[in-house]
């Protein structure tokens, strides 16, 4: 089975650009992605820009309570003209984006930097388990143990790619592992 590189639901990313008219410039990143946002932050640090940093490697689908709490606190009082810039692993980007959306922000005011690695969050379509840091396909599900083809079909609300059993039609099949791009 081939991994389809041309799938249209896979998000594409561009390096963030500073929006000068923002009422609040808000930066959120994992600590190993700071360099992606630093140049922008320096341009507006004088005018009350805010920056939250998280340690990488949180449990899938959740943010560290402290980061999520701080972020919520800021968003509750943020102006409608806020601009949010996010950098980190792909799952982290979408977790922050989803939290911002529930606080009322719209996608137009959120910029997601290109993910710092090609590691993916994976959603097992059989048992609905989410797994972090997946770098090769197929991948064994940590919930149900099935060997999953990691597809390029991506769900923004989960921040994850879908995995489907790769050898469901012939359980004896032993597909080779491929590194994910």
């Amino acid at each position: 089975m081939q991994i389809d590189p041309s799938i249209k639901s896979r998000p594409t990313y561009t390096p963030p650009e500073l929006v000068a008219t923002a009422g609040l410039q808000l930066f959120v990143s994992e600590s190993d992605a700071e360099h992606l946002l630093e140049p922008l932050y320096r341009q507006c640090a004088e005018s009350g820009a805010q920056w939250l940093v998280a340690e990488p490697g949180n449990a899938p689908g959740t943010l560290a309570d402290s980061l999520s709490g701080y972020l919520q606190h800021i968003l509750n009082d943020a102006p409608v003209t806020t601009r949010l810039y996010v950098a980190g692993s792909e799952g982290f980007l979408w977790d922050i984006r989803n939290q911002a959306l529930s606080a009322g922000l719209v996608d137009e005011q959120i910029q997601l930097a290109p993910p710092i690695s090609s590691a993916r969050r994976l959603f097992c379509t059989h048992c609905y388990t989410l797994m972090e840091g997946v770098t090769a396909s197929p991948h064994t599900c940590t919930g149900c143990g099935r060997l999953l083809l990691v597809r390029d079909h991506f769900a923004r609300l989960h921040g994850a790619y879908v995995g489907v059993q790769i050898n469901a039609e012939d359980p004896d099949e032993q597909p080779e592992q491929e590194v994910l791009q």
Partner: peptide, 10 residues
């Protein structure tokens, strides 16, 4: 709105 920094999609 644009001059004040509002996102267009609002």
């Amino acid at each position: 709105a644009a001059a004040l920094g509002w996102p267009d999609s609002l």
